[in-house]
Each structure stands twice: as structure tokens, then as C-alpha cells.
Design a protein around this nucleic acid. Structure first.
Length: 564
RNA sequence: UGAGGUAUCGCCAAGCGGUAAGGCAACGGACUCUGACUCCGUCAUCCAAGGUUCGAAUCCUUGUACCUCAGCCA
């Protein structure tokens, strides 16, 4: 069984073209086991787009009784950090996947990769080149014009072996020489125009320290790492499609016995957010958000803090499917998956975010009685709790209107509504301040409707939430909205930067009165605040001030009607 | 006439020559101690034009649009 309770070997979810390829490979006997890998570079935090890839790779391994490795593609020490490798492991685990003992690093293979490079040199398929970066760019040609061969292209094998060894020994300056594959400077695939295999770069590596001053490039390290790990299907995103001929070249020319197949799929784009690591890093470093785990971020850490569940994210990954067409998935799809999951599981609690006081004039002063409230109507096993009911309560300001429009069935002068789980309450009068704001609503209750039922068959159209003023717990509330105002933040006017589309109202803070039950909450706990939305207790909470992040609001069809 | 990809409902996405699944959104309606949930119903002829075929989203031809590639990043 996998972590999420799916028996291994059962195909789950939708099919897609990658699974079809795998089924075919299994059927024809090309492979009898499936081995995939999730290969992040530890240069940032994982985001929802990575989650799609993780679910795909680990999902396939699970369904086909294969394995999925976690491998850090750490070949560029100048950008990589231990903080990222730690967060990535935590995020993959949180999503519910397990790489067991198969945790690998490309940097573990440096020695092997070096020897593969020597094999290429000996075959006359790689050479040490003295061109500078600028020169190399010139020699590369353009999209439409072929490049020209480097003057260093025909050095002898002996000289190349010697030079490459001396590169490793640190005898040259950074950037002074490179090791290049000798392929075809006129190829339509630019990546085949004698790509760099190794560069000299004296930066401290998070794992190998200063043991190396030459580092392999992605196009060299990746296919060979796949091969070393006996990966059968190397799944990556579309932008690597152009690199596939080089992937195959490396695997073939190094004579490695295992030749994995690279398959590309379209990466996820989500409306109202950005997915590029560069942009996410900028939002963090320039403090547009509070950190990688800011609840507005599409990072796994951000979604987790926001209150998302791994189940919802996995369900989302399954529903959006896997294909090769560029896409922009509506964030409403993600929110739908979340609501569906939370609806079944979240503890209900009453919280009033924009309060107005209600006084039950015919209720005894000083009396406190407890009414029984259902914890989750979707799950009877979650039981019931008790809520204090008293003479002075708070309700939501939007649940009262002095002059209600047609179709409004909440509280209004003369109107009777149900205070959920408590009593039928009728509005008798109200008080306004000098500015015209309602400050108090005076009501009467019907003692015969205890629990919120009437024996006389009298029906009431509206049911609203409330909280007893004396026992209410004050909480901090964070209301989140989309990080960007545009569906596609990269849809820019002349000279604009994507940051021009940042939503200035993506975070609003408020305070709320919450029923005393909330005192039991711990950071990370998720609730549905009745009729309002799903909330998750934030790590910033203190004993004196619990703080809740709004994960997602409840659907609200009244606001649609009222808006018309 | 640089190369490699992709085009099916507003958004994802099935379909693999036999007469357009499903989900999200939207819009009607029912139900309701959350105007939530749930439930019912409505919502496409497949980028274009030719062709092959009894029959084409699926095959062929010619176009068109969009994406990716000129880091010693991944």
C-alpha cells in the first residue's frame, strides 16, 4: 500500500499518453518493471506545478508496481542550498509520497560522470575548448544560421585527456576552458551544436564542498543519472523536448547499458498566480510576500500554511490530467477540490468576523445555557459540542438589513430567523449611531424553539450563525485573495513588469469573535467557520491571540443574486 | 523551406475510421438548521480549406495560429 491507501499495482485516476506508452512497453516486454524519478534542483521551494509532476511520477510508480526515486539535480552549486533540499523532502512527504531508501543526488555521481566524460574523449566525441563564453555564442550561430566549428575542436585525444584532468585539478581559471561534446555545429537543434558538458566553477557545493571545481551540465548529468539509476521512463516538461536528441546522444555515446526514454508533458499554469521559480524567488527576496510559505504563494509550503490538504492537491493533479498542449488551469478547479475535501472533514465552528451586537430583550440577564451544535453534518461520527447562549450575542453585520431587498431572508425589522442550533429570534428594533451605523439590534426569542426547532410547524427561511459575547474568543483573521489581479500575470502592457499585476488586496486582516470551542485548536488545525469559509490556524498564533488563515471561502450564491 | 512541438465547449480533457466521455465554470430548478453540501436539468460537431472513404475529430494534402530552442542555468 502507498501512503495514501491505494494498493500498489492498481491503476488509479485517469489515463494519459504517458501511461499508454508505459503499458505498451510492458506489453511488448521492452520493460518488465517501471522506474521513474522526481528530479528537483534544490534552488527553490516546490510549487503546485511540481506537485503535478510528483503525483505523476510517484503515481505511475505506484500504479505499475514500480519505483520512483527522489533525486536532487544538484549540478550548479552557485544556486543550490541545503535549506531547499530539506524543504523539498518535507513537501514531497507531506504530499503523501515515499521514496523509501531511494534518495539520490546527482552530486553522488560526480566521479562516475567524470569517467563517462573520459569515455567520450577517448572516443573522440568530446574536446576541451578554450573559447570564451562570448566567443562560443558567436560560434554557435543563430536559429536560422548554422554555427561554425571551434578552432579547438580537433585537439588530440591525449591532449584532451590531459587538459580535462588539469581542469579537474584546478589548473585553470573559472570559465577559461570547457569540455564540449563534438556533435554537429550545423544541427537545427541548437543544443546539438557542440554543447558544453563541463564548466569550471569554483563555488562551494552544499554536499561535495570544495572537492570539485568542475561541474557537469544538466544535459550531461541528467541522462546519465537516469541511466545509473536504471530509470525506464524519464518524465520531464515540454521545454526539454529540444534537448531529447542530446539526451539520447549522451546515453548512446557513453555506451551505458541502460537507455532510459525521455517523455515530455506540458507543465501546469494556474490562473491568477505565477509558477516560475525566478519570479517566486523574487517575490520572497523583495518581500512582496512574507516568505516561501506565505499563504498566498502557490508553493507547497504556502498552500499547506493556507490550509490546503494533500488529498485535495492530489485530487487536483488527477483531475487536470496530463497532456502536451499548453494550458492555463482555472484556479477555481483547485479551490473546488479543496472545498470538496474539507466539506467532508472540517470541524464546524461559529465565528463572527464583522460583528454587530444583538440583545435578546426577553432573555434573562446573567443566564448562560448551553445548546448542542453538530460538529459536521457530513460526518455524524464527529459528534456534537456545546455552545453558550446568553442575552448578548454577536452576529455578522451582513446578516441584518434595515431595509431588506426582495429575496433577503436574514434578520430585518420584524423578521424572524433561526439562530443556528439555538432559537428562533425575531428582530424588534435597532439602534444606530450618529453616522447611521447599526450598533445594536434588539430581539426577542421564542423559548419554545430551543435547539432551533418549532413545534408548531412554523418555518423560518433564514438560519444565521452567532456567538455569545461574554464567552467569545477574540481571534486574528487573515483573508486571502488571489496574488495577482490578472488571470495571466504575464499579460503585460508596454514596459510593464509582472509585478504590476500584483493584487494590492491579496491580504486583508480582521478580527473575529469565535465560539469558545476554538480554544482547543492547534496551529495547522482546519475548520469551517459556519457560512463563511474554511480556516486554518496559523503558526503565528499565541495563547492570547489565535490567528486563522482563510483557506477558501464557501460558495456564496446570495452575493451573486444581491449583486444583480 | 532553421529545428522541435501543439491545436476538441469559457477552462482542463477523453476520443486511436463507425457517427463528440467526464470534470471545473456558468445558467435554470429541487432540497436545506450553513443562500454551503447534495440532487436534477441546460451547455461543442472537433483551427481552416480541400481530398480518401458507405462513414473522418480520427487517414492524406495544403494552409493558419500558438509554444519551445541561440546560459559555461535546469
Amino acid at each position: 500500500m502507498s501512503e495514501n491507501g491505494t494498493p500498489a499495482g492498481t491503476e488509479t485516476g485517469k489515463s494519459n499518453f504517458i501511461k499508454e506508452i508505459i503499458r505498451e512497453d510492458l506489453r511488448t516486454g521492452k520493460h518488465d518493471t517501471v522506474a521513474t524519478r522526481f528530479p528537483p534542483e534544490p534552488n527553490g521551494y516546490l510549487h503546485i506545478g511540481h506537485a503535478k509532476s510528483i503525483c505523476l511520477n510517484f503515481g505511475i510508480a505506484n500504479e505499475f508496481k514500480g519505483t520512483c526515486n527522489l533525486r536532487f539535480d544538484d549540478t550548479n552549486p552557485s544556486k543550490e542550498e541545503t535549506e531547499y533540499v530539506d524543504s523539498i523532502q518535507g513537501d514531497v512527504r507531506w504530499l503523501g509520497f515515499d521514496w523509501e531508501e531511494r534518495l539520490y543526488y546527482a552530486s553522488d555521481y560526480y566521479e562516475k560522470l567524470y569517467h563517462f566524460a573520459v569515455v567520450l574523449i577517448k572516443k573522440g566525441k568530446a574536446y576541451v575548448c578554450d573559447l570564451t563564453a562570448d566567443q562560443m555564442r558567436e560560434y554557435r550561430g543563430t536559429l536560422k544560421q548554422p554555427g561554425k566549428e571551434s578552432p579547438w575542436r580537433n585537439r588530440s585525444v591525449e591532449e584532451n585527456i590531459d587538459l580535462f584532468q588539469r581542469m579537474r585539478n584546478g589548473e585553470f581559471k573559472d570559465g577559461e576552458k570547457t569540455l564540449r561534446a563534438k556533435i554537429d555545429m550545423s544541427s537545427g537543434y541548437i543544443v546539438m551544436r557542440d554543447p558544453v558538458l563541463y564548466r569550471i566553477q569554483r563555488s562551494h557545493h552544499h554536499r561535495t564542498g570544495d572537492a570539485w571545481c568542475i561541474y557537469p551540465m544538466y544535459d550531461f548529468a541528467h541522462p546519465l543519472s537516469d541511466s545509473i539509476e536504471n530509470i525506464t521512463h524519464s518524465i520531464c516538461t515540454l521545454e526539454f523536448e529540444n534537448n531529447r536528441p542530446l539526451y539520447d546522444w549522451v546515453v548512446n555515446e557513453t555506451d551505458t547499458p541502460h537507455k532510459p526514454r525521455q517523455i515530455e508533458f506540458a507543465r501546469l499554469n494556474l490562473s491568477y498566480t505565477v509558477m516560475s521559480k525566478r519570479k517566486l524567488l523574487e517575490l520572497v527576496t523583495k518581500n512582496y510576500v512574507s516568505g516561501w510559505d506565505d499563504p498566498r504563494m502557490p508553493t507547497i509550503a504556502g498552500l499547506r500554511r493556507r490550509g490546503y490538504t494533500p488529498e485535495a492537491i492530489r485530487d487536483f493533479a488527477d483531475r487536470i490530467g496530463v497532456a502536451k498542449a499548453d494550458n492555463m488551469v482555472d484556479i477555481a478547479m483547485l479551490e473546488h477540490c479543496l472545498r470538496e475535501d474539507l466539506n467532508k472533514r472540517a470541524q464546524r465552528v461559529m465565528a463572527v468576523i464583522d460583528p454587530v451586537k444583538v440583545i435578546i430583550d426577553n432573555y434573562p440577564e446573567g443566564k448562560v445555557e448551553y445548546v448542542e451544535a453538530v460538529n459536521n453534518p457530513e460526518d455524524e461520527s464527529m459528534g456534537k459540542r456545546e455552545m453558550p447562549f446568553t442575552r448578548e450575542l454577536y452576529i455578522e453585520r451582513t446578516d441584518f438589513m434595515e431595509v431588506p431587498p426582495k429575496g433577503y431572508f436574514r434578520l430585518a425589522p420584524g423578521a424572524e430567523v433561526r439562530f443556528k442550533h439555538a432559537y428562533y429570534i425575531k428582530c424588534e428594533s435597532f439602534v444606530k449611531d450618529a453616522d447611521g451605523n447599526v450598533t445594536e439590534i434588539h430581539c426577542t426569542y421564542d423559548p419554545s424553539t430551543h435547539g432551533g426547532w418549532s413545534q408548531d410547524g412554523r418555518k423560518v427561511k433564514g438560519t444565521i450563525h452567532w456567538v455569545s459575547a461574554a464567552q467569545a474568543v477574540s481571534c486574528g483573521i487573515r483573508l486571502y485573495d488571489h496574488l495577482f489581479t490578472k488571470e495571466n500575470p504575464d499579460d503585460l502592457a508596454e514596459g510593464e513588469d509582472y509585478k504590476a499585476n500584483l493584487n494590492p488586496n491579496s491580504l486583508k486582516t480582521a478580527s473575529a469573535f469565535v465560539e469558545p470551542f476554538i480554544k482547543n485548536a492547534k496551529p495547522g488545525d482546519r475548520f469551517q467557520f459556519d457560512r463563511t469559509g474554511y480556516f486554518c490556524m496559523d503558526q503565528d498564533s499565541t495563547d492570547s491571540l489565535p490567528v486563522f488563515n482563510r483557506t477558501v471561502s464557501l460558495k456564496d450564491s446570495w452575493s451573486k443574486i444581491a449583486g444583480k
